Computed example of a mutant assay.
Amino acid sequence: MNAVTWEQREEIIGLLDDASAAPDVRAVVVSATGKGFCAGADLRGGSAAGERVAGDVARTIRRGAQRFIAAVLDCEKPVIAAVNGTAAGIGAHLALACDLVIAAEEARFIEVFVRRGLVPDGGGAYLLPRLVGPQRAKELMFFGDAVSAAEAERLGLVNRVVPAGELERTARAWAERLAQGPTRALALTKQLVNASLDGDRAAAFAAEAAAQEINMTTADAGEGVASFVERRSPEFRGR
């Protein structure tokens, strides 16, 4: 069920960081093989020998689950989640941190922490209220019930639900469409939307103006304006 190990987390964090820096990478798809998307953290190798001291758990969360989710939120390219099956715990948060979420009809989302007597980590209490509001977020986290793909779409957790056989094709089509877009403008738009949920209007307006100032120095912005004036389709190159 693709329970994620520490090594896998580090590899994915590195890949997302590399994607941000690579001009030829224009979009990212996070997908999985098998029956599940991600069943959460792999806890089998998580308990080290020796006495635990104060601060160990918080440090582990900061270095592990929180860095993992932040890598998705901070990636400078659009990130699509293609959720093929169960996304539980940190697996659900991995999907929900993505910019766009496409789910197969069989997919389920589970805030499994309460079933283990745990507090949600990996940004769950940050992500969920921003997607569905505080009351719905508490319902999902307090009860830990499985949410079907159809219900997740109704709640606003996912963008689109498709038959399993169409998941890969749909995700690829969305990624290819994004890859033809103005990559830097998309990166700045992503930053603005994410930051807008944490600040006031004055800060959001100031960030918007600064982002547009930066964006107007890109070749794609020049191409977009030129294509409008010349009444033709733009050809963005991600520069």
Rank of each mutant, 00 (worst) to 15 (best):
M216K: 13
Q66R: 14
C98T: 03
F109T: 02
G14M: 06
R59H: 11
N84V: 01
N84L: 02
E111T: 10
V225C: 09
A39N: 01
F109C: 02
A87E: 00
D24K: 11
Q212E: 12
V57L: 13
A95L: 04
R108C: 04
Y126F: 14
A164Q: 11
D145R: 15
K190F: 06
A187K: 14
V114K: 06
G117F: 03
P120K: 04
R154G: 11
E223Y: 03
S47T: 14
A22E: 14
T183E: 12
K77G: 11
G122V: 03
N194W: 13
A173I: 04
E235R: 11
T60E: 15
D220P: 03
V112D: 09
G45A: 10
A32W: 01
R108M: 00
G55P: 07
R62A: 15
T183S: 15
G85Q: 01
V161R: 07
E139R: 10
D42P: 06
T189Q: 13
C75I: 13
S196R: 12
A27M: 08
E7D: 09
A19D: 07
A203T: 14
E223K: 04
D200S: 11
A95S: 07
L128N: 14
I102Q: 01
A146V: 05
W174Q: 13
E223D: 05
A21M: 11
F142P: 00
A32P: 01
Y126N: 12
K77T: 12
P23Y: 10
I13E: 05
A39M: 00
I69C: 07
P134A: 05
R239I: 01
F109Q: 01
A103W: 01
A171S: 08
E230Y: 06
N215S: 10
G36L: 00
M216L: 15
E168I: 08
F236C: 07
S31G: 12
I102A: 01
A226N: 11
V53C: 02
G224F: 07
P120V: 06
G50N: 04
S31M: 08
A206W: 09
R232N: 05
K138Q: 13
V132M: 07
P163F: 02
A54N: 05
A152S: 11
R26K: 13
I13Q: 06
A19I: 09
R59V: 08
A146T: 03
V161Q: 10
L128P: 13
V161A: 10
L157V: 05
R9P: 00
G50F: 04
L127S: 07
A150W: 09
I102K: 02
P134I: 02
N215P: 06
A150N: 11
T86A: 03
G123W: 04
G122T: 02
A146Y: 01
V29N: 00
